[in-house]
């Protein structure tokens, strides 16, 4: 399966990534992928990723432009986004 991931604000700046295409083998992991599972998977990259995605910072997730919670399922072709709590207005 193939998904697109976007990062914003503090995450984008610290991870030095604004967008990436991620390809995963079509195994059980991919078939049961959720926001939380994806965060944990990306967090394994190194300490910075661990700290930003699974640390103290609250990270919100979106799938295809909709805010979702950690248990939301991710499917092939989805656009996933990770960002800190919003501060507009």
């Amino acid at each position: 399966m193939k998904i697109k991931i976007l990062y914003f604000a503090r995450l984008k700046e610290t991870l030095k990534f604004s967008t990436e295409d991620l390809e995963l083998p079509n195994d059980d992991f991919a078939r049961t992928l959720t926001i939380l599972k994806l965060k944990a998977y990306l967090a394994k990259r190194n300490d910075t990723w661990q700290q930003m995605l699974m640390g103290k910072l609250k990270v919100r997730g979106a799938i295809n432009h909709e805010l979702v919670d950690d248990n939301a399922p991710i499917t092939d072709g989805d656009e996933v986004a990770f960002f800190p709590p919003v501060t507009g207005g």
């Binding site: 503090r10 919003v86 501060t87």
Partner: peptide
Amino acid sequence: IMDYLKTEAPFWKK
């Protein structure tokens, strides 16, 4: 609208 914008619309200030 303002209360929801503040907490749900994806904007970030630096």
